[in-house]
Design a protein around this nucleic acid. Structure first.
Lengths: 111, 111
DNA sequence: TTGATATAAAACCATTTGGTTGTATATAAT
DNA sequence: ATTATATACAACCAAATGGTTTTATATCAA
């Protein structure tokens, strides 16, 4: 077993920023270098790089050096922590069927 | 139609803080005044009050004056925005069945 | 009425956050 | 070899965050 992996930034804090949420959705389209990502945001490449660092520390993106590029790709796995926390409040929905209904509807809305 | 309701704090930012996440779980047990809530946290009552203000602005808690007390209760509804955002990444799980499996497991874990 | 209780509100503070610009370095293209 | 590209890194900055203490106000209890 490795180190306990103390994350400086957790997933909740990582997705608190709207720019970072947009970056994750953008990266859902596939791996891309910082310059490409940067083209989608009204801020400096350095600022984008800092956001990606935070996402990386939360385990939500992985990086890979290719030539002079640094390519990023999404790793959605840590988002399951979100799902798990959220599920604590499931009992506040009418019943299981309503919860599933809700899930399906939101899945549709996200298409 | 009323005002567009510009929220100063959104649900993502509200749950970014671990103390606020604990407060929401605590309030899942039912309505309670600030003093009671405050008893569960190693910080001043004023600090707790500020956190509750942020949760209130995000629509996650409702307050009600009863005598000299100010009682807070959970309103989980805005959490559905979380669920909706999360669902965008559903396609990264193997398939729908795996997603449901995952949902059920996390629901179990939260019991 | 005199305290005690529950809370709000204001002022203050250190640290973090989200951004900038400027400089340096490695790689690729001509 | 020279130039252009992709990025990292450091220094800086204003505003937001998460906390404190102090002061004030309303309500309940004796």
């Amino acid at each position: 077993m490795g180190e306990p992996q103390v994350k400086k930034h957790d997933v909740f804090q990582a997705i608190a920023d709207p720019s970072r949420r947009r970056m994750l959705k953008l990266l859902a389209d596939g791996e891309m270098p910082i310059t490409t990502i940067s083209g989608h945001f009204p801020m400096s490449r350095t600022a984008v790089s800092k956001h990606l660092r935070i996402l990386s520390e939360a385990g939500l993106v992985k990086e890979r050096k290719v030539g002079r590029e640094n390519r990023f790709r999404l790793d959605p796995e840590p988002l399951s922590e979100l799902q798990q926390w959220y599920s604590y409040f499931d009992r506040f929905w009418e019943n299981k069927m309503a919860a599933l209904q809700h899930l399906v509807e939101s899945a549709e809305a996200a298409k």
